[in-house]
């Protein structure tokens, strides 16, 4: 993966995970999970705006909006799905507010580079890969619209 294309926040997140042992990586993922921002008031009653991430085992919904060429990512997942919430939170914190081209340039295999495969299993990490793919697809769709 070309490090130069990775937004600073995602790069820091990766360094943070890789600096930890497997067990502590789970704890860090839990911290991310707890930090997933609540949806803004104006979107709470608009499930129609959100896209379901089919690659995830638990229900998680994402919604991308563009404002002055910058990406705003909203995600919601139930408290009973902390792993999925953690994945969503990593992406929300890492991508929100970035210019469109930086989001589109994030390597598709970023989720595999966090060292989570041993901690949560490769199959579960695939859910995050699906999430990232759908974020980028929504961004492309919004640009085209």
């Amino acid at each position: 993966m070309d490090a130069t294309t990775l937004p600073a926040r995602l790069s820091e997140t990766r360094e943070d995970f890789l600096a930890l042992g497997v067990r502590d990586r789970l704890q860090l993922l839990l911290e991310f999970s707890n930090e997933l921002p609540e949806l803004p008031e104006r979107y709470r009653d608009h499930p129609d705006l959100f896209e379901k991430v089919e690659e995830c085992q638990s229900p998680v919904y994402i919604f991308v909006e563009l404002e002055h060429g910058r990406v705003h990512l909203h995600a919601t997942a139930p408290a009973e799905s902390p792993t999925t919430r953690g994945f969503a939170s990593i992406l929300v914190q890492g991508l929100d507010g970035l210019p469109v081209d930086e989001v589109l340039a994030v390597p598709a295999d970023y989720p595999q580079s966090l060292g989570l495969s041993e901690a949560v299993s490769p199959l579960r990490v695939r859910g995050m890969t699906g999430m990232l793919g759908r974020v980028k697809r929504q961004v492309r769709k919004r640009i085209a619209a």
């Binding site: 704890q27 999970s33 085992q57 408290a79 799905s81 041993e118 579960r124």
Partner: peptide, 22 residues
């Protein structure tokens, strides 16, 4: 659990976790 982190969010006092994947 299915979710590998669910135990960490709160579990029965004194219980231990066994994760099917890992």
């Amino acid at each position: 659990d299915e979710d590998v982190l669910l135990y960490e969010t709160g579990h029965i006092p004194g219980s231990v976790k066994v994760d099917w994947h890992t």
